[in-house]
């Protein structure tokens, strides 16, 4: 595999030093990663919950205001996630759980693009209480299921690595 030079490079950055030398950096980043996860999932519950008909009376157009919230929360988790990667690059990159997690996030990303370019325009015209089209419901369901699996596999990373 060709990820070793990348891991080597991460290991030699000054930020690797920050992550391993300052003992509270890792727990701090973890805590922020949890808060980001909550904000991201909450925002998705509003948008996807409305589309799936769990909360059909929410105004669809106003629900879309939670999309930037989801993107900011994802940004927080991308940055804090990069911090973990700097701390221990060889173990993360070699961890099958980590590889699965990145693959699932890529799927969620493609799904989000499909949502934005394929469904968004039509959805904002929905009246309150009106059912979303079937295609949009499929996208919303994929979104929630994939993110739940991202959380699951993320929590399991310490156990899927093989070397503790």
């Amino acid at each position: 595999m060709s990820w070793e030079p990348f891991a080597e490079w991460l290991q030699n950055t000054w930020f690797h030093g920050v992550m391993v030398d300052i003992y509270w950096m890792f727990p701090l980043m973890e805590t922020l990663h949890f808060l980001g996860l909550i904000w991201l999932f909450g925002a998705l519950l509003v948008v996807d919950g409305r589309i799936l008909g769990i909360a059909p009376n929410l105004n669809m157009k106003a629900c879309m205001k939670f999309i930037p919230v989801a993107i900011i929360a994802f940004g927080v988790n991308l940055l804090t996630g990069l911090a973990f990667l700097h701390a221990d690059p060889f173990n993360y990159l070699a961890n099958p759980g980590f590889q699965w997690k990145m693959g699932l996030i890529a799927i969620a990303g493609v799904n989000a693009l499909w949502f934005w370019f394929g469904e968004h325009k039509e959805l904002v015209q929905l009246a309150d209480g009106q059912q979303a089209p079937f295609r949009a419901k499929v996208i919303a369901l994929i979104s929630l299921v994939v993110w739940v699996f991202v959380i699951i596999i993320g929590r399991l990373l310490p156990y899927t690595g093989g070397n503790g």
Binding site: F34, L37, I38, W39, F41, G42, A43, L44, L45, V46, F66, V148, I151, I152, G154, R155, L156, Y159
Partner: peptide, 20 residues
């Protein structure tokens, strides 16, 4: 690990709704 990930998914669900 299984109970731990259940706790993480439950947290995201409760806290997600509380936050929004």
């Amino acid at each position: 690990p299984i109970v731990l990930f259940c706790h993480a998914v439950g947290m995201a669900t409760v806290m997600g709704v509380v936050v929004v």
